[in-house]
Design a protein around this nucleic acid. Structure first.
Lengths: 106, 106
DNA sequence: TATTTGCGAAACCGAAAAGTTGCATATATA
DNA sequence: TATATATGCAACTTTTCGGTTTCGCAAATA
């Protein structure tokens, strides 16, 4: 069981679930209605998402509402940041090259 | 074969390879030296990364240099963006709440 | 109280993935 | 030219993953 956030996000259904519950909490049944799978399959995805703390539960009677733990998503953003730095640097360099060309044309 | 960028990035070894070749191109042998796996395993990872266009090759004699296709990483960033919006909004809301508390204290 | 509903957990299955081994090919080098 | 080196590719094995089915439990409802 690897259960890290990148592995959790690798599955397209789980990404869809994440997007679905990002703004409002939903029950497993309600979530499952949006997909071509059974409630149990969704339940399994939710367990994986819960295990890596991407999702939190709130029990209301016999219903359980799942919602996104948005802060956890920042971990992915944090990993991406190192690459963002690279492409921003390159963009600035390209920008300078273009500026130089423009200057020389005058 | 799913071969999408999220599945590619799910593997920790592949993430390490990506980080390794982000700044300078490297040969499979040189990359493999950084891990506890065989060259063939690394080669397989590189193939997967190449297939989803995260990595590009440059042949030099009998050596092949692999480097990161940084633009492709933007796809992950793009997906994260929708959530960044959410947490930034919440942060601003929290900020307002704090400002209001401060104001009322005066 | 009996039945329905919402849910998680375990057992099972088929497909896919990750790693290993062995081999083929092309480029260096002695 | 013979050998060593760098690499990719295919076959095979083991593990993991996603899904379904079945079950049990608790809460709602008739």
């Amino acid at each position: 069981m690897r259960r890290d956030i990148f592995q959790a996000v690798a599955d397209p259904t789980r990404r869809a679930i994440i997007a679905l519950i990002a703004l409002q909490a939903m029950t497993p049944n309600a979530i499952a209605e949006n997909f071509n799978t059974t409630r149990q399959a969704v339940s399994k995805h939710l367990r994986i998402l819960t295990e890596c703390e991407l999702v939190k539960q709130e029990q209301k009677g016999r219903e359980i509402y799942y919602s996104l733990e948005i802060d956890k998503m920042k971990e992915i953003d944090k990993w991406i940041e190192q690459f963002r730095k690279i492409w921003e640097t390159r963009f600035n360099q390209l920008d300078q090259v273009l500026a130089t060309i423009k200057k020389n044309k005058k």
